[in-house]
Computed example of a mutant assay.
Amino acid sequence: MTPGTGVTELLAKGELTVRGRIREASNAALHCTVALEDREAACIYKPVAGERPLWDFPDGTLAEREVAAYEVSEATGWGLVPPTVLRDGPYGEGMCQLWIEPDPEPEPGAELLALVDGEEPGEGWKAIGFAEVGEGRTALLVHADDERLRRLAVLDAVINNADRKGGHLLPAAGGRLYGIDHGVTFHTEDKLRTLLWGWAGEPLTTEATEALTRLKQGLEGGGALAAALSELITAAELDATRARVDALLASGRHPEPGGEWPAIPWPPV
């Protein structure tokens, strides 16, 4: 099933059946099907009970942050996060997200990340930084100069994503690109860690400015986005989100690494 009308209702109200566990995930992540009347879809269910404690995020809040990231993504109009809801399930309350199958036949040259020799990224690429590749050699880690990634970079700046790894980029059929795994977001302190630094300091696109303006309006008192987020994150975190949107609009530029927090997640992919 592809995202469309009624998907969030299916995720929220359908019967969840666990099919297996995603063992690579750092927290409990269960591959499920969800069925409602004559509709069925694959999904991922992450119960709060399976979240590992983190030193810098309150316990039991990652599922709500994943849903909050979806709400912000929808408010931009970009649809960068698969439909995600908070619901009860076989192992208690958790987040439930539509399962997106990766594109089985990606076009040649559609890579989003690469390692290249030399000190310059080359045409169509943006530099991230140097990485050790063994035997004392280093290579330049780059990401594609891709408008879909650029939108994700803006979204990450808004939600203060502390963990945008390469494995959290999900190219799907039809040229769609999704970002997944948004549990460590919306902190009040600057914790932006991402591979998508290629546009750091560059002017925001007109499209991004328009999306941020929509977010600002939605985050105002009485706005639909503010109401949705107030059920998912704290008042201080909501205020910090407003401040990040205001700062992006005031500067008109993509943020740069702050220097007080590692700028790139580890491992990066």
Rank of each mutant, 00 (worst) to 15 (best):
P203A: 06
P265S: 03
C43P: 00
A114L: 09
R148V: 03
A69V: 01
V245H: 01
N160T: 00
A162C: 06
A235F: 02
V72A: 02
G77M: 07
R65L: 02
A144T: 08
A139T: 08
D163Y: 08
E51Y: 07
A114I: 04
L86K: 00
A157F: 08
A208G: 11
A29I: 07
W199L: 02
F130G: 14
R176Q: 12
E71S: 09
E220L: 11
R87F: 06
A144Y: 10
P90T: 04
W78V: 01
E260G: 15
R214V: 07
G77W: 06
A68E: 05
P83K: 04
L152E: 12
T2A: 14
E51T: 01
A208D: 13
E207H: 12
G124I: 07
E231L: 14
P53A: 11
Y70D: 09
R39Q: 13
I180A: 03
A228G: 05
A35L: 06
G218P: 05
W197L: 14
D59A: 14
E107C: 09
F130Q: 15
E71L: 13
G167C: 00
E256F: 03
T84K: 03
I180W: 02
L149M: 04
G124H: 09
L54P: 05
T138F: 13
I128G: 06
A208H: 11
L169S: 05
H187V: 04
D163W: 04
W99A: 12
D56P: 10
L195E: 06
G258C: 05
G109N: 09
G166R: 10
R214Q: 06
A75T: 04
I264Q: 09
P203F: 03
A153H: 06
L232H: 07
T138P: 11
Y70F: 15
A172N: 04
T5R: 15
I22K: 13
G136P: 09
T8A: 14
D59F: 09
T234N: 01
A236G: 11
P83C: 08
T234G: 12
G259F: 02
W99H: 14
V72F: 01
A173G: 13
I180F: 02
